[in-house]
Computed example of a mutant assay.
Amino acid sequence: MNSLPSTMRASVLLGPKSLAVEERALPALDDDQVLVEVTAVGVCGSDVHFWHDGRLGDWIVDEPLVLGHESGGRIVAVGRAVDPERVGERVSIEPQRPTPTSRETLTGRYNLDPDMRFYATPGVDGAFAQYVAIQSHFAWAVPNTVSDDAAALLEPLSVAIATAQKGGMTIGSRVLITGAGPIGIITAQVARAYGASEIIISDVSPARRAQALAFGATRAIDPQVEEISMLGLEVDVFVDASGVASAVQSGLRAVRAGGVVVLVGMGAGEIALPISVIQNRELIVTGIFRYANTWPTAIELVSRGLVDLDSLVTGHFDLDQVDAALRSTTQPGVLKSIVTPNTSAQ
Rank of each mutant, 00 (worst) to 15 (best):
V204D: 00
V322K: 06
L4C: 12
G216E: 07
A25Y: 01
I200W: 01
A245Q: 08
S11N: 12
W59C: 09
A247S: 15
G269P: 08
A28Y: 03
T7I: 05
S242A: 14
A127L: 05
A257C: 11
D310K: 12
T314Y: 10
A28P: 06
G315H: 00
V239T: 07
G251F: 09
L56H: 12
I134M: 03
A247N: 10
G57A: 12
F238K: 02
I200D: 11
F50H: 14
G305V: 14
V307L: 10
G79F: 04
Y119K: 02
A120W: 00
L312R: 05
R256Y: 06
Q249V: 14
W295H: 02
T105F: 11
A193Q: 07
S328M: 03
T340I: 15
Q135W: 02
R80I: 09
Q321N: 09
P206W: 01
G54P: 08
P95R: 02
I275R: 11
V21M: 09
V239R: 02
D203H: 07
I271W: 12
V255G: 03
E104V: 07
V260A: 08
L335G: 00
I201R: 01
L263A: 07
R24T: 04
V204S: 00
V244I: 15
V307Q: 06
S147D: 02
R117T: 07
V261I: 14
F50Q: 03
F215V: 10
Y110L: 01
S18F: 02
G315M: 05
S136V: 11
E300K: 12
I221R: 04
P274V: 14
L263C: 08
T297R: 02
T329Q: 15
L309H: 01
S158W: 02
T145K: 08
V159S: 01
S147V: 05
I185N: 08
Q224K: 09
G54K: 05
E227C: 06
H316Q: 10
D31V: 13
V38M: 09
G258Q: 07
M169L: 15
I60V: 15
V190E: 09
V78P: 10
I288D: 01
Q189S: 13
R24C: 10
A10K: 08
A141F: 01
P16M: 13
Q189H: 10
S18P: 00
P16L: 11
G265P: 04
T329P: 00
G79C: 13
W295M: 10
R109M: 08
V36K: 08
A188L: 07
A150P: 01
R208K: 11
S311V: 10
A188Q: 06
V322I: 07
W140I: 05
R80W: 02
Y291L: 00
Q33I: 01
N342H: 08
M169F: 08
S276F: 13
V334G: 03
A141C: 04
P223R: 00
V235D: 07
